[in-house]
């Protein structure tokens, strides 16, 4: 079974919503919402018991990553961890990540079989720069900020491909996950429009809408396979056209 996620928010609606959003891209990952207080119906706040129960429910043998929103959610999660015995505690991590972006990145990594450490890493590196000036109509995230330095030198000959995005919604969350999930399992260094194509968050942050050009460059043993895969998905409109 995959790593499980516990989503701790002050608001039950936010926690449920994040699980709903992440489940779209990670159907097999246990996503347990722990939003609001222990009261019925929950008030705004965080509930110790609720988080404790969620930790148990999310654990399917591969560990649990906890994602939180504001301050007291972190404190409640830390307390719940302190109440676990040593073995159980070592299988739980609290990711220092933005709730929505981090949860999606973590869920996608968990879905593709990532280890506890990998899932935490993905959550924590899912920082999306929001640049309102570059917002595009169909994508809520701002334009990508590709890393400053040049891309790492590619090993071996590189294979490139270029396509126009045919699907009306562009490179939104689901298609980004479709690409990243499969590419992650290939032995390849691959970028799309200058960002790491194995990162759902970076792909989404490109903000590519319908009709925009998508340029991919890959190197490594699976380079050709990666480019073929991207081309196949893009020209097929990710099944959305």
């Amino acid at each position: 079974m995959t790593v499980g996620l516990v989503i701790v928010s002050h608001s039950a609606k936010i926690a449920d919503g994040v699980c709903e959003l992440a489940a779209q891209m990670a159907p097999d990952v246990p996503l347990i919402a722990a939003g609001g207080t222990d009261d019925v119906p929950p008030r705004i706040g965080t509930g110790f018991q609720k988080v404790q129960d969620a930790l148990v429910e999310a654990e399917r043998g591969s560990g649990v990553v906890v994602l939180t929103d504001l301050g007291s959610a972190v404190m409640t999660a830390e307390m719940a961890l302190e109440f676990l015995d040593g073995d159980a505690r070592s299988a739980v991590r609290i990711a220092r990540a933005a709730l929505v972006e981090g949860s999606i990145a973590a869920a996608v990594r968990a879905q593709s079989g990532g280890s506890l450490d990998e899932v935490v890493d993905h959550a924590e590196s899912a920082i999306v720069s929001i640049d309102p000036g570059a917002l595009e109509p169909f994508v809520s995230h701002g334009a990508a900020v590709p890393s400053d330095g040049p891309a790492p030198p590619a090993a071996g000959p590189s294979v490139v491909g270029e396509w126009d995005l045919p699907n009306p919604m562009g490179l939104h969350a689901r298609p980004a996950a479709v690409l990243a999930r499969e590419l992650t399992d290939m032995d390849v260094e691959v970028s799309i429009n200058g960002v790491d194509a194995k990162s759902v968050m970076l792909l989404m942050s490109l903000g590519l809408g319908q009709g925009r050009k998508l340029s991919a460059s890959a190197s490594g043993p699976d380079a050709q396979r990666a480019i073929d895969y991207i081309g196949d998905k893009v020209t097929g409109g990710f099944g959305e056209t």
Partner: peptide, 15 residues
């Protein structure tokens, strides 16, 4: 307190 306060005071005073 940890289970009933709800806000940041719960884990803080609980601790």
């Amino acid at each position: 307190l940890m289970s009933t306060v709800g806000g940041a005071a719960g884990p803080l005073y609980g601790t």
